[in-house]
Amino acid sequence: MELGFVVAGLAVGCVVGLTGVGGGSLMTPILLWFGITPATAVGTDLLYAALTKAGGVVVHHRQRHVDWRLVGWLAAGSVPASLLTLALLSRLGPSQALDGVFRFMLGVALLLTATAILGKPWLLRHVPSRWRDAPFAAMRPALWATGAVLGVLVTLSSIGAGALGTLALFLILPALPTTRLVGSEIAHAVPLTLVAGIGHAGLGHIDWSLLVNLLAGSLPGIWLGSHLSHRLHDGWLRPALAVMLAFIGARLVV
């Protein structure tokens, strides 16, 4: 067992438990720092995300925090988009030839995630008032389109299902309780990351021993962070993370 990867999983799991910031936005850059190729980092992190979030879906479902209509419309856009993206990747050649694409998309996703974290309060204050009273049926096209965008972005970067997906839902359905928005986005992230992860496995982009090491650290890390979250104020932690993600994203894009 590689101790460094276990410690990385522990650290990322703890931060996710403390702040709720998506693990992919932290884990994938760490894997690149360890020297993992971009294709393998993205593919392995997708299955890692699917497995770690599956337990959260069970908890949110039991607490009735999942709107399955919402999950269905998001998945109707994201899963086909992910499959189409995987089909395109399979035609473009070996993972080595795609590393530049993955690296660039990682940078874009990190910049968007940092913007979502920092800009969320401002965006929520400027949600059009007519959206607050709009019926669910009127927002179905927006949900489908959001899912499609997330499907492409997550498949190419493993990032976006958390911070970006949740922010999009806040803007589309501002009247829905926060707990149901968060629970629904976690529920949607599982099939998306699972489909994308299995697709990457078929392309040879998964390091199975790495996946086991990350899970060995992250599962207790999430438990620890969740139990410490009430003792720490994330008013400074989340902006600090956003600045760090923006810096890493800019480096990858440039």
Rank of each mutant, 00 (worst) to 15 (best):
G56L: 12
V253G: 08
R125M: 10
G107Y: 01
A196S: 13
K120S: 14
A242P: 05
F102Y: 11
G165R: 02
G9F: 00
A189R: 00
Q96I: 08
K53T: 05
V190E: 00
G13T: 03
L32A: 13
C14P: 06
G4I: 11
G199C: 07
G197I: 08
V212F: 05
A41G: 07
G225A: 08
I222H: 05
S158F: 01
D133W: 00
N213L: 00
R69M: 10
H227L: 11
L83V: 15
L111N: 05
R180K: 14
H227V: 11
L143I: 10
V59C: 03
L84A: 15
L10T: 02
L92G: 09
F247V: 15
G197A: 09
A216I: 02
W131G: 03
V66M: 12
I159N: 07
V57A: 06
R125D: 15
I206P: 04
P29N: 12
L211Q: 00
V66I: 15
H200A: 11
L164G: 01
G20R: 06
D133P: 01
D234V: 11
G249W: 02
L150R: 07
G72F: 10
L51R: 01
P177S: 06
S95C: 08
R91T: 13
I159T: 03
L88C: 12
V7L: 15
A114R: 13
S95E: 14
G100V: 05
G9M: 05
L106P: 02
I159Y: 01
A41N: 04
V154I: 12
R130S: 14
A250R: 07
E2G: 10
G35Y: 11
L86V: 03
G217N: 04
F136E: 12
M105E: 04
L98M: 12
L173V: 14
L31E: 10
G20T: 03
V253W: 07
D133Q: 12
L143C: 15
H200Q: 14
G4L: 11
P141Y: 07
R238T: 08
I206W: 07
L153V: 13
L106S: 10
A49L: 07
G204C: 02
E185Q: 14
R91S: 14
A39P: 05
P135Q: 01
M105V: 09
A187F: 12
F170V: 04
R132W: 02
R62A: 13
